[in-house]
Amino acid sequence: MRKENKGLAAVRRAVLAPYGVWSMIFIVVPLFFVAYYAFTDSSFRFTTENVTRFFTATSTVGGATVHTYLLIFWRSLKLAIISTAICLLLGYPIAYILSRASDRTQKILITLIMIPMWMNFLIRTYAWMTILQDTGILNGLLAKIGLGPVHIIGTETAVVIGMVYDYFPYMILPIYSVMAKLDMKLVEAARDLGCNGWNVLRRVIFPLSLPGVISGVTMVLIPSISTFYISQKLGNGKFYLIGDAIEGQYVANNLHFAAAIALLLMVVLLVCMALMQRYANKRAFV
């Protein structure tokens, strides 16, 4: 490679500077503030009490003693994983169909998928309440064809529906964007070599679309693990997730414990993401 022009190099350094400074001050430093608050008490003296409380606080649930925050954390994780899995299962075929459609169809469908995202998500969630209520639209429709009623609102199903709905496009778009670039010759070659449809999907298409899947999974898992609005509205206030816990502590003016929960959530997610990235890198070279 030719040695780069000096003037050009200077321009490049100069254009990076604002972001460098910005990201230090507004991305990196605030994380230290989370850690700082997590390890101090209300008069800013060092303490590990907030962190210990997360691991040791107990409650009585159905007669048994459980660790409050570990249970809350586990439940949030479970719901987030279920929602992410459903998003992936429903979204992957759509992404595939999209990537194989004509240019015009692709454009129209992508736009259609994006439009709901432009509506305020609090309002969208409200609309789901109207649909899923026991006396809601869905049960009204079911009754007309002689079925139902089904009880959804306030159950895990309702919360999962809300999460899947709100984050669905985040799953489709990255997968689609990778699939659209996928070289169809590889698929043809696999077929010519005797691969059946399932094996083409499993051995050729899926591994090649993995980067899109990883970023889709990240973009759905992260927001669904920390949501507090969806669970409040669609869960009939019966679900108390990690986001609710952080918000609850914030509203109770317990900033230091809120910071501790946030810090631990962040650490767990970072570890998860690192592991997933590692898996992706490994698969990419197989």
Partner: peptide, 19 residues
């Protein structure tokens, strides 16, 4: 650094900046 706001839940980005 660029990845941090993407893999941090928004609640953490919000709280960290607020603090």
């Amino acid at each position: 650094v660029t990845n941090i706001p993407m893999i941090n839940p928004d609640i953490i980005t919000g709280i960290s900046l607020m603090l």
